[in-house]
């Protein structure tokens, strides 16, 4: 193993749906492979087969099934499904798929409404999809402690709107797949990487500066990359990212532009 590297990882930010980390001691191709795999090769579940029993809405069946496919589905941690094409079953089964049913009619929904809202259209949302498998459901964007409570403001993803007298009844089969085949199976909203800037301060040259010059050095940087230690007065890199153009933002660009105009 002559060319074995030992990559290092340093977590910068970690949230339920977000992670940012510094990857070092490896090659760019590894970072790019990670990014590409996260976007296109991590298997997820998505609606893949739709049987429409009744659709009197203004959306065509094909349009509707496409919209259903794009709804993100969330499974409980550790839930594993087979690929449908690897499964032993004839068509589809519990091992390789989950069946969602949706039955919304304007008449039923509008019935329970207050009088002044009776004629309003009814929204068909992802919350109306009833899963056959309790471990898999349409994703909720409310915080996880609110998803099943009454205080949740999560209204779901709108699939269609029904006018008076319209009805939508369908069965949708979710299957496992990867985003190489169709982007609906992509598990990520964003996966990206960039190079970290390396800023080194020449300490010999720094020692030649007077305290005033050091203060000026820190002050003169428009992106405020540097900071100064209060006690010793030495310069250090405070906001390393700020030296990259995109992080400094539009505010600074405008300021420079206005300075040019003046």
């Amino acid at each position: 193993m002559p060319n074995l590297r030992a990559p290092q990882v340093e977590i910068v930010d970690l949230r339920e749906d977000f992670v940012e980390f510094v990857l070092s001691n490896t090659d760019t191709s590894v970072a790019n492979a990670l990014r590409r795999v996260m976007i296109a090769e991590v298997p997820t579940m998505a609606i893949d087969l739709v049987t429409i029993h009744d659709n009197s809405s203004v959306l065509q069946d094909e349009f509707l099934s496409h919209r259903l496919g794009l709804i993100p589905l969330a499974a409980d941690p550790g839930v594993q499904y087979e690929y449908n094409y690897d499964c032993d079953c004839e068509d589809y089964c519990d091992k390789c798929s989950a069946v969602f049913t949706l039955d919304v009619s304007w008449d039923k929904k509008a019935l329970g409404r207050p009088e002044h809202m009776q004629d309003q259209p009814v929204h068909v949302t992802s919350a109306d999809l009833v899963s056959s498998d309790p471990r898999l459901r349409a994703v909720h964007f409310a915080p996880s402690d609110q998803t099943n409570s009454d205080i949740s403001q999560d209204a779901g993803i709108i699939i269609a709107k029904l006018a008076k007298g319209q009805r939508m009844q369908l069965t949708a089969v979710a299957k496992k797949g990867i985003a190489k085949e169709h982007a609906k199976w992509s598990p990520v909203a964003v996966a990206t990487y960039k190079f970290e800037p390396v800023i080194e301060i020449n300490e010999e040259k720094e020692a030649l500066l007077t305290p005033e010059q050091k203060a000026e050095f820190v002050e003169i940087c428009p992106a405020k990359v540097y900071g100064r230690d209060e006690k010793s007065g030495t310069i250090f890199v405070e906001h390393r990212d700020m030296c990259m153009w995109r992080r400094t933002g539009r505010y600074l660009r405008r300021r420079w532009w206005s300075r040019l105009l003046r």
Partner: peptide
């Protein structure tokens, strides 16, 4: 040899990442 090295590296990366998380 390249695939062997890479798979070992990925294995190490997975361990380090899970550790750090």
């Amino acid at each position: 040899a390249a695939t062997e090295d890479l798979s070992q590296e990925m294995e190490g990366l997975r361990e380090v990442f899970q550790e750090q998380v």
